[in-house]
Write a protein that binds this DNA or RNA. Sequence first.
DNA 1: CTTGCACCTCACGTTACGGTAGGGTTTAGA
DNA 2: TCTAAACCCTACCGTAACGTGAGGTGCAAG
Lengths: 225, 225
Amino acid sequence: MKEPPWKVGELARNTGMSVRALHHYDEIGLLRPSLRTAAGHRLYDRTDIERLQQIHSLRLMGISLDETKRLLDGAAASPRQVIDLHLARLREQMAMQKQLVRRLKALADHLDTAKPLSLEELCKTIEEMMRVEKYFTPEQLEVMEQRRISVGEERMHVVRDDWNEIIPKVRAAMENGADPTSPEVLALARRWKALVDEFTGGDPAIANAVKTMYNNDGPALQEKL
Amino acid sequence: MKEPPWKVGELARNTGMSVRALHHYDEIGLLRPSLRTAAGHRLYDRTDIERLQQIHSLRLMGISLDETKRLLDGAAASPRQVIDLHLARLREQMAMQKQLVRRLKALADHLDTAKPLSLEELCKTIEEMMRVEKYFTPEQLEVMEQRRISVGEERMHVVRDDWNEIIPKVRAAMENGADPTSPEVLALARRWKALVDEFTGGDPAIANAVKTMYNNDGPALQEKL
DNA sequence: CTTGCACCTCACGTTACGGTAGGGTTTAGA
DNA sequence: TCTAAACCCTACCGTAACGTGAGGTGCAAG
């Protein structure tokens, strides 16, 4: 049972990477396909795909392609050292962020009391911000941003799926004229409310609009929540 | 009391920015000094410095220079709003950093206790962690870590080892399409559940997330729990 | 045989600057 | 007043991790 090697487009489709990224990894020697056709088309076999998996893992941890390459080629610091280094950097960064939060709060207070700020005060704040920024690699920022977006989407989908499950039940219960105080209906209602809370993110304006909806559509239910 | 305007080098020294960055902001029209000497030397006054502070707040929030420019020129943003926005974003970032720290610590932990991990295993561990994290909110993960600490490292290692022992079996059973009602599978499932209970510390929200995980990854098993 | 898609190799664009070259300006001290 | 150090100017190339064509080749189907 031999697996046919994959061409670059197939690999891209199956891993979610872009063709260009794979080309790039080839260019910098991070992932060179084991084979090529006579015409020069890249052919990736199983070992290549495994290496790609590893690259992806390390990248998720915010490790640069350069460092990834050194790690995978075994010619560098131990994984433990790399992790410790990242940890140290992160901790230092977080400490400074805390300080910056304090300073910004103070700044906001100044603005509230409408006293003109001294130049030194302003500059010191900027200086503080610079220090924080220095320790942010663009990679970390990007990974965090990516994660922020994807987590948001994931939760959104989960919420939507739950929503689609619950609403028909609620509707059915209402149409059947089920007892609004029965445990089943109350359980449903509580799940509904939890969903709404998550959905609105605690924004009272949105929650209020939802409440209006309740008032119009399910007054009997709303009381018991 | 009039404040003399600053030359670019002075401003750089006092804010920690680089001269080059200030030149750059001038080039792209983001921060043009209010004055120039006859010879073309840049002179920054107080309003320029205030604008610089806003620029930095926005930039630290991950907003591009381009958008920063549009925002600041859009007459909209009050300094107070900018700072509040910045504070909110900072807190969000710190939450994510905590998450990253936790991940890295878990990884380091793994490297300490488990015998020398191969890179392959390391990467698999990372993937595992990422998959698990998909199902939990940061707060829940935090609770779990608190619990980890209170339960004590040693016990946790035992749990983790159990986990590592059970999961492959579960997975194998699922892949083999084993009968979900068979005693072996049920026994496995019960051990798994016991582990989860210990791990989650009885938090129903966390248990629920685990359940969602079950629902997505092991529907056949979940029914019999 | 041609259509169309996937592939190839350059090679320049992107962001937010860093670094340096080559040359003018300012200012403190002799 | 002259000079040398320190400062300033513009202008251009380099970075990471690719995106985005341009212009040309390979290959299976109709």
